Amino acid sequence: MSNVDPSSMSRRQQMSATYKMAKQTYPWLPWLMLGTFLLVGGLGFAVFNWVLPGAGVIGLVIAIIGGLMFGLLAMVIVFGRRAQSAAYAQMEGQPGGAARALSMLRRGWRTDQVVAFNKQQDMVHRVVGPPGIVLVGEGNPHRLRTLLANEERRHARVASEVPIHVVVVGDEEGQVPIRKLVRHVQKLGRNVKGADLTDVLSRLKAIDANRSNLPIPKGPMPTSMKGLRGQMRGR
């Protein structure tokens, strides 16, 4: 897996990296995309022919263009969904996978990776956004209890009036699968607005100033994650 920073890549390079990543997980992806393009494109052509019967050459040209547009749009949608699924598959089980998933949150959210962790690499990430403060733990759920409780108390000292949500990533009961993490966080409500968010972030600096520099655990990070953010927006 390449360690190239997506921010240094062009849009074309990001798309190429995303395609390669998705194809590694789904080798049949090119055939799915081709089949989608032909099927939906054909349906689009038929629809335009039905809407513009007897329109001659102009009608035929419009039908061809319409079919191509329908086919391309459907192919892009299928590609985006498969690429997103492949990215999550690569993140699952990897140290720091939750932080990489949270990096896909849109503007208006502040994500701080690994604000706390232990020797066993259980870790806590922090998200500040409309719901308030969200503490996201990944690792052993039993060890995380202490880690999350300590962080919750620490944050409550400087932002007692701000809702603090605790989320544990995992596939067991009461946990949130990594593929559903972003959507789960976004659905926690809208309790903090505009200037209040700035005030919360300012007060949290007092906590961060007292921490030592924490190294982020290493692990394979899909180089295409930045390109996938746009595909996730609104979903």
Rank of each mutant, 00 (worst) to 15 (best):
G54T: 04
R211E: 14
G80L: 10
L32A: 13
V136H: 00
G234Y: 03
L147A: 05
V185S: 01
G108F: 00
L39F: 15
A63D: 02
K187Q: 14
A195S: 08
V76K: 08
G42W: 01
S10N: 02
V61R: 04
R11S: 11
A99V: 07
Y88I: 11
R145A: 15
R203W: 09
L34H: 09
H155K: 07
L38C: 15
M75P: 04
A87K: 03
P6F: 04
P95Y: 03
N118V: 02
V185I: 13
N213R: 08
T25H: 08
L72W: 13
R106C: 13
L105E: 03
L39W: 13
D112H: 04
R183Y: 08
P30W: 08
E151C: 13
S8R: 08
R106T: 13
G234K: 01
V182A: 15
G96T: 04
I164S: 06
A101I: 00
M15H: 10
V76F: 15
S160M: 12
L105D: 03
A17S: 11
R100Q: 14
R100L: 14
L43R: 05
V168H: 04
V115W: 03
M91R: 01
L39R: 05
V192L: 07
D112E: 06
I62V: 15
H184R: 08
